[in-house]
Design a protein around this nucleic acid. Structure first.
Ligand SMILES: [Mn+2]
Ligand SMILES: [Mn+2]
Ligand SMILES: [Zn+2]
Ligand SMILES: [Zn+2]
Lengths: 132, 132
DNA sequence: CAGCTATTTAGAACCATTATAAACTGCAGA
DNA sequence: TCTGCAGTTTATAATGGTTCTAAATAGCTG
């Protein structure tokens, strides 16, 4: 029930697979960051049937396009996603490749003084790399 | 001459290939951003002999490790590098995948209020995505 | 229920990057 | 200058995350 309307309202059919992925992604206490591999594992742990990797990719991209997920710019061979879609920034722990949210209040206002003709700012993302 | 000492002082042998790559990367009016593919093309255009792709990768990684190049965090299937190793930020033009430098003076000071125990901040990078 | 389209799926393909291992080369010491 | 060796280059293969393909399946509308 919970996610059926969300999906329908987005023009996405509420399939069994998408609903299960919604459970894993959104029915949580806290938001979290993930790679596709990590999500695949999480799905295996939480549900009994199998969801193909292609469907996981399809669904993540569909959700991203609808704004239910964000991609985070990091230097990694894997793509990082975020279920926290509010405006916020990140610590990136180089040691283990984990991301930590910096809430908006953790970072002073970002003031971009330069403008590019004919272009609009779509997002401003700060990545703070951490080492020991 | 110009780059022989730079390399030797870094513990890198000044080979013909490395010196030629230095010319392409550093003997320029302006700094620039590049992917490995773009660099490979630039090298082909500027020198007569062939440098293998493996050597280009090896050299770029060696130079990055020595701090002569920086990697820029973007969401792309290719890795972006920067010959501008000063502290600065970037516009990322989503339309064509090109980066534009934001000089330090173009961005107000970034104030990270939160600390992580036992971790030091290695870098702070701002990516401003641009759309039409 | 029928028909249509969206979705799922296994597997192949893609492609940037890294690994391999043999040939080559810069250089320190003789 | 010659020798020997570690460092480097190279062609090529392997890796691995991601995307593509096309056939099977499942929602949805009438
Ligand atoms: Mn994507
Ligand atoms: Mn690298
Ligand atoms: Zn986050
Ligand atoms: Zn730059």
């Amino acid at each position: 029930m919970k996610y059926i309307d969300k999906l329908r309202n987005s023009g996405l059919r509420p399939t069994k697979q998408r609903l299960q992925i919604c459970e894993v992604l959104f029915n949580t206490e806290r938001t979290f960051h993930f790679t596709i591999n990590e999500l695949e594992q999480k799905i295996k742990d939480k549900i009994d049937n199998k969801i193909s990797l292609a469907t996981i990719y399809n669904t993540v991209h569909a959700f991203e396009k609808k704004g239910y997920l964000k991609q985070i710019p990091v230097n990694s061979n894997q793509t990082y996603f975020d279920t926290n879609i509010t405006d916020h920034h990140h610590f990136y722990n180089l040691k283990d490749g984990k991301l930590i949210d910096l809430e908006k209040s953790d970072v002073g206002p970002i003031n971009i003084k330069r403008k590019i003709d004919g272009k609009k700012i779509k997002s401003i993302e700060v990545l703070v790399k951490l080492e020991d």
